[in-house]
């Protein structure tokens, strides 16, 4: 094998090794993000979380701040304009109940929002019935994170 050919082969191997890394850099870092249709690739990132909340139930979602900055979570909608639910921002609960709060409200309505400075790390939002629901509702939460 000539020297030139060896050089070309080596270059090809290095490029093949580097390509997947470059691909990783382009994409968002969490699996949650891949299902969110509104996730851009620049900071801050906006994610949406919409699902149903059953009577006596709760729903939580974790998200990752890839760097330090400010995180804002907003309850965009929850049933009717006067429907009150529990809503909060916090960190995943290692004991298994979903999300423990840093800031929360037991009487959140559409428009309730929490903004906190955050370090890079994993955080969560949780929406739950405080006992006021009489039927299943649909809610939507927006997460803006670094």
């Amino acid at each position: 094998m000539s020297r030139l050919r060896r050089l070309l082969v080596s270059g090809g191997v290095i490029a093949a090794l580097l390509l997947p890394v470059a691909a990783c850099d382009n994409g968002p870092s969490t699996t949650d993000d891949t299902t969110s249709p509104t996730t851009p690739t620049t900071s801050p990132v906006t994610e949406s979380f919409s699902t149903q909340l059953f009577v006596g139930g709760s729903a939580s979602r974790s998200f990752t701040a890839v760097k330090a900055g400010t995180a804002t979570v907003t309850l965009v909608s929850a049933g009717t304009a006067t429907t009150k639910v529990g809503f909060g921002l916090g960190v995943p609960d290692v004991l298994g109940s979903g999300c423990v709060f840093t800031r929360s409200s037991e009487a959140a309505t559409a428009g309730t929002s929490f903004t906190l400075p955050v370090d890079a790390g994993t955080y969560c939002v949780r929406v739950y019935d405080v006992g006021a629901l009489t039927s299943t509702i649909t809610f939507s939460v927006t997460i803006i994170r670094p």
Partner: peptide, 14 residues
């Protein structure tokens, strides 16, 4: 780094 990330009542409210 140490972060007091959560402080809640027994009901779970922050």
């Amino acid at each position: 780094s140490v972060t007091l990330a959560s402080l809640t009542k027994s009901s779970g409210t922050a």
